[in-house]
Nucleic acid binder design. Structure first.
Lengths: 246, 246
DNA sequence: GGATGTGAATCTGTTCACAGCA
DNA sequence: TGCTGTGAACAGATTCACATCC
């Protein structure tokens, strides 16, 4: 148990948070574990084994145990993990104990859907402002929020601390929007526009490109069809795990 | 040049495709290179260096060169890559030379937006059918397509080969939909529902979970704030590349 | 007994640095 | 000289297998 500080308990009620820097791959999986744990809790489980939780999260158990061990984990040998405790731990590490404010820029086709996406609210995020540059959209009400002009961003940011900015504009506008978000003090950006953003080193950017996902699937589809078409090609479904890495 | 078959040219016009199995990480980046290349082409470039293309795609040049070398690449030392040629190469490898049919299941909040997403059509994909289970939505026209009941899936699949199924239903319905897609012969699935799908080994699944992306950003946000709050914590923006892996 | 936590081995991916070619 | 292509070194992530503890 290398990560346990002696003395005071760490975590939600602990004194010093001391987030040990987790491997990036682990961080990316923690939300999935969290979702699986919530599911366990709703189904009435108080405790769950690494095997069971791993299955629910779609990974193998060794990986799950190593991931959780990085948190200085709270399992019990011979028993498993306490569901409620682990939920608290992961939520704490991910910084979900405080509800984070999200500002969404671009209320076109995709932005419109994101503004009303249930998954955000149900997972500790709160969309607090919608922005756009198109005069036609300004003032429109979407899921209870009024669309404001992007130039009002500094004013809004001044009164409400924005934790995360979501960019759902066309690619051509994305860099300018990113600059405005950064200028307003936003240090985390989720970018749906198909382009590369350049930002200062202290700003984190994650990109989601829906077309890219399809293209990756297309590659595998293409490969499957050429494999089966080739002389020595093994028939589809013959062997091997084909699940594509996320 | 390890991958060149002697004799006949490979690629778009080649005899035997012979897709050398590329590293998964490389496959995931090819679409990004493709986008950057299209941008180059539109800007009038006929040739581009690894340095230039890497910058446009948001990676470093060594990685890009290694990725392209896996295709048995078409660069010229001292000059760079021929933009048009490389576009053809990558589109061929990704299987984008044929337009692939996409079926979308679930026309709720998110599905509605996906049905009209420009990025799909502009990148070689064609949404050919919309499905839902809710009687209230059946018959509705969205971006020129009529929503059909999910039970009609087999009939539609029989007349149009569906390359990719997109699931945009609530989590509770997703597994059943996946089963129906698989039964209809679909072997590639893009899943937006926050749950793990179990499918036969010959079916590829990619998952996009918007809330997970926010939670990963939340972690970094949390860590940044604790770092700056701690005694010895270096101030934000002091050093280091913080861009988060995709 | 049974399940966690973890060193060691392995695999995958990234980066370096330079040979080789235009 | 300039830039690609690539072996070799490096770093990171996954898997194995088992010691450890309830």
């Amino acid at each position: 148990m290398s990560q346990h500080r002696p003395g005071s308990t760490s975590g939600p009620a602990g004194a010093v948070p001391a987030l040990p820097d987790l491997p990036e791959a682990t961080v990316a999986r923690l939300p999935e574990y969290l979702r699986a744990l919530h599911h366990c809790a709703e189904t009435g489980y108080e405790t769950v084994s690494s095997e069971g939780l791993a299955a629910a999260a779609g990974v193998n158990s060794a990986k799950l145990r190593k991931d959780l061990s990085h948190l200085g984990s709270y399992g019990t040998r011979g028993v498993g993990y306490d569901v409620a405790l682990l939920i608290d731990q992961i939520e704490y590490v991910l910084g979900l104990t405080q509800r984070r404010a999200v500002a969404l820029v671009g209320v076109g086709n995709l932005g419109h859907a994101l503004a009303g996406y249930d998954g955000f609210a149900s997972r500790g995020f709160h969309v607090v402002a919608l922005f756009d540059a198109d005069p036609a959209t300004i003032g429109e009400r979407i899921h209870g929020l009024q669309v404001r002009h992007i130039d009002e961003l500094p004013a809004v940011a001044a009164e409400t601390a924005i934790a995360i900015g979501v960019i759902a504009t066309p690619a051509a506008a994305a860099q300018a929007v990113a600059d405005q978000l950064v200028a307003a003090g936003v240090t985390s950006i989720l970018n749906f526009a198909p382009c590369v953003l350049s930002v200062p080193p202290n700003v984190d950017v994650r990109k989601v490109d829906l077309a890219i996902e399809l293209q990756i699937l297309s590659f595998h589809e293409h490969r499957k069809s050429t494999l089966t078409a080739l002389p020595g090609g093994r028939a589809a479904g013959t062997s091997g795990q084909e699940a594509v890495g996320s």
